[in-house]
């Protein structure tokens, strides 16, 4: 019979390590998770055009300027830009979270294309 995972030595030691973990790092997993949910519709495309809004109802987000993304996300959330899907997708997310998400997406590069720091990147 299997039950609850035992709180083994590893958990205790990890717990000790977490006490020193920067708060920003803990938040990063949350933001990375949120960015991954975007990828459910917004495909990372190497051939995405320079103006992502021009080509698709679900533009590629990776590498897009954070200010643009943040403005769009807030407009969807607040009902200033009509999209039932996006209104649901961002419902309940506060400004700080949306800003962190927009920065994360900007820092993520499309496949086969250098990101802002010149390094090849991964999908959001």
């Amino acid at each position: 019979m299997t039950g609850q995972p035992a709180k083994r030595g590893v958990a205790a030691v990890l717990g000790a390590a977490l006490l020193t973990m920067p708060a920003a790092a803990a938040d990063d997993l949350r933001i990375a998770y949120l960015a991954a949910t975007c990828a459910g519709c917004h495909a990372p495309r190497a051939d995405a055009p320079a103006d992502p809004a021009a080509d698709s109802p679900m533009p590629a987000l990776a590498g897009r300027p954070a200010d643009d993304t943040l403005a769009a996300l807030k407009a969807y959330r607040d009902g200033q830009r009509p999209s039932a899907v996006m209104a649901a997708a961002v419902a309940g997310l506060d400004d700080a979270t949306l800003a962190a998400l927009a920065r994360h997406l900007e820092a993520t590069s499309p496949p086969n294309r250098p990101n802002a720091s010149g390094q090849p990147g991964a999908a959001p």
Binding site: G9, V10, V13, A24, A25, A35, H104, A107
Partner: peptide, 27 residues
């Protein structure tokens, strides 16, 4: 475009460093 923010991977490496160190101690 200027790079002012690190992608998740950079920060994650820091977290993982701690996690790996911790598991390392145990193992």
């Amino acid at each position: 475009m200027t790079a002012t923010r690190q992608p998740f991977t950079a920060t994650r490496r820091r977290v993982l460093g701690l996690a790996m160190l911790a598991t390392g101690v145990m193992a």
